[in-house]
Design a binder for these strands. Structure first.
Lengths: 346, 346
DNA sequence: CTGTTAGCGCTTTCAT
DNA sequence: ATGAAAGCGCTAACAG
């Protein structure tokens, strides 16, 4: 194996053309400017010698990386969560046919905020797909002043000038409430996620607002926090039951908590949905497999990520590639009725 | 926001030193060569102006990327699999405290092999963590002739000169067989994975070899292929039962197939483990949650990936960083006895 | 359609 | 301990 390295000069020499011509030939955008015959000759040489352009040089020279960053909070177990898997799957599926690559950017969030973060080594990407932005930015203005185009996934904040692709969690909360209310439930408990979670807040508010409109108020005691965690929900169920043994429905702000609650209910000999209906939020992959299959609000996270990627890539390929993006795109949330909710007293 | 860009020249000018000194100051390896006073001055400036070195330039100049690639086959749903999630988690956990980053390299495997693959854009990474190598390489020699250090995870092939970190699947197969045999089972069926899978082959061989040694042969009919797929196993169970309605145990070469088989068994009114014991392989996260909790062979994939990353990074930080790696490291497989296997007639 | 040339920002001898 | 200068491989005007 000769380890001679082939750079653009070598190929140019062998092809008897200048490096500029090689450069044109290897870049889709400029390829048309090269004569077909020349092109053919060059392509053969490239293939023959297995030449691949040096990315670092491309980046340095062209000031683009053809890479987008996907920003995740660095949380233990993040790779095991459905949410992130859907996003990764969507991004990589979308990018597969493009010339772009992606890079996962894991940010620690232990009190840190973006402004203090330097990506450890100064990552270079052309654009960013951001999840959980509220965890990273101390001030909203930071998001608005990013030097590269950003698309924020899932959460939407109309007050911030950037590009959002997400779902109306508030509306989702209302739909869930409507479902539960229509089934005749009046004694309802809620399992809420962590305070820092924007979507949790919205889901809660929507749910409560709907019931309020119906003249129904949930006792504050009956809203307990379980931080989106299955095991926490599991252990909070009894607390709930002690406060009001007669609740007939539980709204869990995510599926994980619904799973935890239902497991505990089962152990306590309380039949679900017969005695207590449970509705979740997210529609995770396990929701349908659960016993009983979980009624939940479907959040099309794969679609959200796909659309977000599409917006970002289209923008990066436009003339304004360096400018920031702005807009809001809302995808629908919908109720997926399965077996964990039933009419009261049925 | 002044968008003036700070490069090494700007900082050098402000600090009244040469760019060489800045360069030394910002690199851990050469930092000691700079006078403390100078260092202090430089650090302040860097902080003040928020300077971060341009990675592309570093890479181009230094011929390193401080990035390792994690090679995965591009299969639909890959991000939803436990296997890959464990690997990603391990790599990112390990790298978090280093100055390295990682990049997922998804290779299409539709008949393609590595030699035809150019990483689409000529990825530049300093080293590779490879999973499923057998899918990528038409000839073993390719693996041996990679120009950058590689570590192959999970599968081990003693004939190939490269670095492996994995598990002895053959041994695992034997242990599984021993367990089933010891429980008194003699009429055993097998659910096998796809032929291209090295670990599947090894697991099968080990299992069969053990039984053979005990003088027990499995009827070839009773070995059916379900390609590591849950739904395929689900649908093959009846075939199995038709061939021999009296089987008392099933060895599934991975947990997914075990899940599928048990689901179908349940539907058919066949109690597991009472009527038929089932043992899986992998010990996926769902294995413990299944009803009944699945007895299976635990493959420490997280540990494998962690160790593989460690080997690679250590090597990249050594003087031989450019040379290829060579060696074999075997981590233990062990039986995790849960509820899906019981003594025959118990 | 093709060639010349000037960077891109940093690392690395080689001097001093 | 620090500086000067030569690249690293490619892109992008600008000429022709």
């Amino acid at each position: 194996m000769k380890d001679k390295k082939f750079n653009i000069y070598e190929i140019a020499r062998k092809a008897n053309v200048s490096i500029a011509t090689i450069s044109r030939a290897i870049n889709p955008e400029t390829r048309a400017k090269v004569a077909p015959a020349t092109l053919k000759k060059i392509d053969q040489l490239i293939k023959k010698y297995g030449y691949t352009p040096n990315l670092a040089a491309k980046h340095l020279s062209g000031n683009v990386t053809k890479t987008i960053g996907v920003v995740f909070p660095y949380l233990p177990g993040i790779f095991y969560s459905n949410y992130y898997n859907h996003i990764l799957a969507a991004v990589s599926d979308y990018l597969f046919d493009t010339h772009y690559q992606f890079k996962m950017l894991l940010l620690k969030v232990a009190g840190d905020t973006w402004d203090k973060y330097d990506f450890k080594v100064g990552e270079r990407v052309d654009g960013l797909l951001i999840t959980h932005w509220f965890k990273f930015f101390s001030k909203k203005s930071i998001l608005e002043n990013m030097k590269i185009p950003c698309v924020v996934l899932n959460d939407v904040d109309r007050k911030i000038k950037t590009q959002f692709v997400g779902v109306d969690h508030y509306l989702g909360g209302q739909i869930a409430a409507n479902h539960i209310y229509s089934l005749g439930h009046r004694r309802i408990a809620m399992l809420s996620g962590p305070d820092w979670s924007m979507d949790n807040q919205q889901r809660m508010k929507g749910f409560i607002a709907f019931l309020n409109k119906k003249g129904l108020r949930i006792k504050p005691d009956l809203i307990v926090k379980a931080d989106y965690l299955e095991h926490m929900a599991y252990s909070k169920v009894e607390t709930l039951l002690k406060i009001d043994p007669k609740i007939t429905a539980i709204f869990a702000c995510n599926d994980q908590m619904a799973f935890g609650a239902m497991s505990r209910l089962k152990e306590l000999g309380i039949a679900s949905p017969k005695d207590i209906s449970v509705i979740g939020f997210d529609d995770e992959m396990d929701a349908a497999k659960f016993t009983p299959p979980l009624t939940t609000m479907h959040v099309p996270i794969y679609d959200i990520a796909t659309r977000g990627t599409e917006i970002l890539i289209n923008h990066l390929q436009s003339k304004d590639a360096k400018k920031s993006l702005r807009g809001i795109e809302i995808l629908p949330v919908r109720l997926v009725e399965r077996k964990s909710t039933v009419k009261i007293n049925s």
